[in-house]
Design a binder for these strands. Structure first.
Lengths: 149, 149
DNA sequence: TATTGTTATACTCTATAACTATA
DNA sequence: TATAGTTATAGAGTATAACAATA
């Protein structure tokens, strides 16, 4: 066995643990961000996932929030009572309710998404090629089965 | 204005959005992982954060879970009732209760942490230098104010 | 019959405030 | 007085099961 190789192997395996730490650390980031808009984390997710251009059924929102359909009723109730989203009957099937984002909802959604998409300084400062390379790696990771679900 | 530069700039700013997507996607990964051990996500965090070598006070666990101390009582109750952790009186101050991980708790904790720390294929396959470089970047990101809290 | 969304129920996580036992 | 942990309370997220309206 080559000691140098072994040692190197240990040191370089910091990547995954660091990524895991980062993932755990971002929880408070998201909670704090949502709370700036008086949204709970799940409400923030719902508003983020909803598309102002294309209303989606309640069941689709349930899928995207990874929760049971029965929960969506309550989550949507709260956002609707604040006038951020609206239930709309669907023409083709009167059972489904399409979820639309209101004008007021769009204003908050835009700010929320802008805040999400603003990269931290240490990301902005990276060389262009490093960013591209890194993005590719993370994208591959994202598409790998087992992580996203 | 140089069009080529502008275009390049746009394309390379995939990094942060991809990382954000990854962070959101990992929620279900963590939920599923904890559920394999019959743990809720917060219970999993508690077991992960507790150190079998060094018991910590309830208040410290509250800090690490980023929640109010009053919640910790219930979370600890559940883990203790399953025999995974134990409250121990502290000698120096009889108000504080040190949280220790039991032998049974260690068994589950070890498996949980092993599962967390197992890198996905796409990470394992990366060249050594790439991993090191990437880990450095993520570490910098992790230490930046505003993300971790 | 099957599906969409709702309601009822029960459990966990969460914060705030009041309490206890120590310090 | 101040602090560590608890309890009481209320609100939000979660799943399961039963239900109404519609397909």
């Amino acid at each position: 066995m080559n000691e140098t190789l072994l040692k190197s192997g240990d040191n370089t395996d910091e990547l995954w643990p660091t990524l895991v730490e980062l993932v755990f650390a971002t929880k408070s980031w998201w909670v704090a961000l949502c709370s700036e808009f008086d949204l709970t984390p799940v409400q923030g997710q719902a508003l983020r996932v909803l598309d102002p251009e294309r209303p989606i059924p309640m069941s689709t929102l349930a899928e995207q929030l990874l929760c049971d359909a029965s929960n969506v009723t309550g989550i949507v109730d709260k956002l609707e009572s604040r006038g951020l989203i609206a239930r709309q009957g669907a023409d083709h099937d009167r059972r489904v309710k399409q979820l639309a984002v209101t004008e007021r909802g769009c204003q908050i959604r835009d700010k929320l998404i802008a805040a999400i998409m603003t990269p931290p300084r240490s990301v902005i400062g990276l060389p262009r090629e490093v960013k591209t390379r890194l993005a590719d790696i993370l994208r591959t990771l994202l598409n790998e089965r087992g992580l996203s679900r």
